[in-house]
Design a protein around this nucleic acid. Structure first.
Lengths: 134, 134
DNA sequence: TCTGGTACTTACCTAAAGGTGCATACTTGT
DNA sequence: ACAAGTATGCACCTTTAGGTAAGTACCAGA
């Protein structure tokens, strides 16, 4: 997200003071500009590369592919190559991926419910930050 | 997030084809390496700057402050300055922020539940990606 | 008096994430 | 014959998020 990022570097005494919950692990996976969007979209079922690219508006090929590879490496989605020509490939959530994508739902809902408020806020956001600095 | 990042640049025809759900809005807010952690931690109640800094292990002052300012600008938390000397300041979630932080809970739960699996995967992740490339 | 804690601010630098544009090899539609 | 769609790969470049290290003004305790 953009982002969300890595997380804690090896905590020796396991879950010592420093606040750590499962969120750390989750963030490692969904960190990437478009990853949450990709995952959430895949809830709709197997999706071809092209579809995905059109759905996740503005993502570049390079990054989309890269994200897909990483998500596959993380075991949340699977790439299916139909070995046809012209190429035909689609992506599916694994069981793990599905549960993850479902965990994103509340965020989506929240965004939808507060859409109006957010737009107001985003409009003033920059001036707000500036006047604070001044 | 990442990071998670910006999102769609002005979709003219409103919610035209390009997949957009509330997730976009939400991501705009929680995008930042430590933001989800900050929000989630604040569910525990008003927290002083120092506490927060110790809780969100490894965050630098610069970034922590910066994230807090932005989250405040986004209306999800409030800064309370007690005007004391030495300085005493704490941060609280707004109503909006609380609902957002709660929406993060499933992600946290997911991470906790799949912690073991994730550790296995993370261990192989890099070699996995490499062998794919080769 | 010196160290440490409070909550920051600022200037500077770097690593990495993401974007751009070109290329591939084949097929279908015009 | 030619453009377009299919799913990528690669080299290169820019942006920016984040980290580092210093400083501030004040107070309490050793």
């Amino acid at each position: 997200m953009s982002h969300l990022r890595q997380a804690s570097t090896a905590t020796p005494t396991s879950v010592a003071p420093g606040f750590t919950c499962g969120l750390d692990a989750t963030l490692k996976i969904i960190s990437g500009k478009w990853k949450p969007l990709i995952l959430y979209f895949l809830l709709r079922g197997p999706t071809r590369y092209g579809e995905l690219k059109r759905a996740v508006r503005d993502v570049s090929d390079k990054v989309l592919i890269q994200h897909l590879r990483e998500l596959e490496a993380d075991g949340v989605l699977r790439r299916n190559d139909y070995k046809e020509v012209p190429p035909r490939v689609d992506y599916t959530l694994t069981q793990l991926g599905q549960s993850l994508a479902q965990a994103l739902e509340p965020l989506c809902t929240w965004g939808t419910e507060n859409m109006a408020e957010m737009q107001k806020i985003f409009a003033e956001r920059d001036s707000w930050l500036r006047e604070k600095q001044a």
